[in-house]
């Protein structure tokens, strides 16, 4: 029972990380119709900027604004120089251009920070594990869950309750009408792209003390993020939230419990190898099933 709860918590933690990335991706797609493969690069930029500042100053507090600012700035620069020219184009051009951006950013990071992975020390206040009664759990992971849920709340508030959010919602469903009403759509697009980048940067800087900050970290998580976005329904932030939690929990549960289940019916090492293979395919299978049942995802934005 304790193990089950602990694994669920792990699933939620992975889920909120995925949500931070997926929210930006889905907003950018919903409003601008752009597939941004380079979204993972923004996650990497946030992680590297934070790691660099943390190493230079020794302070994780300073690293937070650095990671956020770097990701948002780079994001807006990308929007301004490249993505802006792709709005009217088909998905193929977008895939081509943003694939090119991935190559560029990966190599740029190698040139600037070298090939060795970087590290961020966990802030001392969040180090260690806390006793939750049934089991103990790393404090830092609890913090990630808290920050992720708080960010999700803030984002919903932003979208449902503010003027910017109104434009975002309107832009997702009636793009042309928003333009016709004289809203500065270019500015709106840049702001939304920056916001998406900011969230990716947040995920990146939080992952620093957990994972290793290294070249290519963006692509590892990018594909999983796409799965989340598609399961949730393109353009839908609440869909991204549900999709992220679903993917996080399914992925973690498969990894945690499948070997045990299979070991009941076959020998140990065969079961482990098979379970490893199935759990790696699991989330993709989940996505295929969801799309087959609901081709527009769980919470389609366009009704």
């Amino acid at each position: 029972m304790a193990l089950l709860l602990e694994q669920m918590l792990n699933g939620v933690q992975l889920g909120v990380m995925l949500f931070l990335l997926a929210a930006g991706l889905t907003l950018i797609f919903g409003i601008m119709g752009v597939i941004n493969l380079a979204h993972g690069s923004l996650y990497m930029v946030g992680a590297y900027a934070a790691a660099f500042v943390a190493q230079a100053t020794g302070s994780f507090l300073l690293a937070i604004p650095a990671g956020l600012a770097a990701a948002a700035l780079v994001g807006m620069t990308i929007e301004f120089t490249v993505v802006r020219r792709l709005y009217a184009r088909d998905h193929l051009d977008q895939v081509l251009a943003t694939f090119g951006l991935i190559l560029f950013f990966n190599q740029l990071v190698v040139l600037m920070f070298g090939r060795q992975p970087m590290f961020v020390q966990i802030p001392p206040a969040f180090a260690g594990a806390i006793d939750l009664g049934l089991f103990s759990y790393p404090v830092y992971r609890l913090c990630i869950i808290a920050v992720g849920l708080a960010t999700a709340g803030a984002l919903f508030w932003l979208i449902q309750r503010t003027r910017l959010g109104m434009l975002v919602r309107a832009g997702a469903t009636h793009r042309d009408m928003v333009q016709a009403l004289g809203v500065d759509v270019r500015l709106l697009y840049t702001v939304v792209f920056g916001l998406g980048a900011l969230l990716a940067g947040l995920a990146g800087l939080m992952s620093g003390p957990l994972l290793s900050v290294q070249v290519g970290m963006g692509e590892q998580i990018l594909i999983l993020t796409f799965v989340v976005v598609v399961i949730g329904g393109l353009g839908s932030v609440s869909g991204a939230f549900a999709g992220a939690l679903l993917v996080g929990i399914v992925d973690t549960s498969l990894r945690a419990f499948l070997p045990g289940l299979l070991r009941g019916i076959m020998t140990g090492s065969e079961a482990d190898a098979l379970a490893g293979g199935i759990s790696a395919m699991g989330v993709y299978l989940l996505m295929a099933i969801v799309l087959l049942v609901r081709p527009k995802g769980l919470f389609p934005a366009h009704g």
Binding site: I35, H91, V95, L234, M281, Y284, A288, L291, P295
Partner: peptide, 17 residues
């Protein structure tokens, strides 16, 4: 059964599997 971006992604998903 899907089209547009979901089609792009579902083909990616099958390839990943």
């Amino acid at each position: 059964r899907t089209s547009g971006v979901p089609f792009i992604m579902i083909t990616l998903a099958f390839a990943q599997m």
